[in-house]
Design a protein around this nucleic acid. Structure first.
Lengths: 101, 101
DNA sequence: CGGTATCCGCCGGGATACTG
DNA sequence: CAGTATCCCGGCGGATACCG
């Protein structure tokens, strides 16, 4: 969800692009999450009745008020992921090996 | 979890205080979440072997790097909760009534 | 007080198949 | 392409009981 908002931060996007933009997520979850965000009034969902069907998703002004925070959050995780992983390995190393009596 | 970090933003806290500070959460979840945050290196878990047992939880410097973002996130949700609820009612009102043929 | 252990119901979310 | 509809399983998290 953070990722979805991240993908919409600057421009309007189509469904396929959003789906492809996030690794390891099912189509179902993309739809579901988009619906929730739409319900919360964070983004708009515009259907173009042409063919092939094109659907645009865009952040509302209200949605944009979350952008700064979400982007910051996303950046924090990417910058510190390694540090967190280290900490986890460390933590696990001191506790799990106590499996032997 | 956001709430837990929020509670630790300025000062060291004890288990009971943290538990009482969050409505509708089980003791188990508090412990579990604290363990995860500790594992990630975001906070420290100090046991004082006195009686009655007192256990201190405090954010690490690393944990503090998340503070700004998390606080911002918390503030955003509290400030906009009402607006979101409105949007939801609106959204639901236009769709659910279509239960009748 | 500050946990750990166990049981268990619920639903988040993937896989798959089908519509417009 | 952009969904909706089902099936189904893993694990999140509450309730409860017991330890140091």
């Amino acid at each position: 969800m953070i990722l979805l908002i991240g993908q919409l931060q600057d421009r309007t996007r189509h469904f396929g692009g959003l789906h492809r933009g996030i690794r390891g997520i099912s189509q179902r979850m993309v739809t579901l999450t988009l619906r929730q965000l739409e319900r919360d009034g964070l983004l708009t969902h515009t259907v173009h009745p042409n063919f092939p069907p094109r659907v645009d998703y865009e952040l509302t002004p209200f949605g944009s008020t979350l952008l700064d925070t979400m982007v910051a959050l996303g950046e924090w995780t990417t910058t510190h992921r390694q540090e967190i992983n280290n900490s986890r390995h460390c933590y696990d190393a001191t506790r799990s090996p106590r499996t032997q009596p």
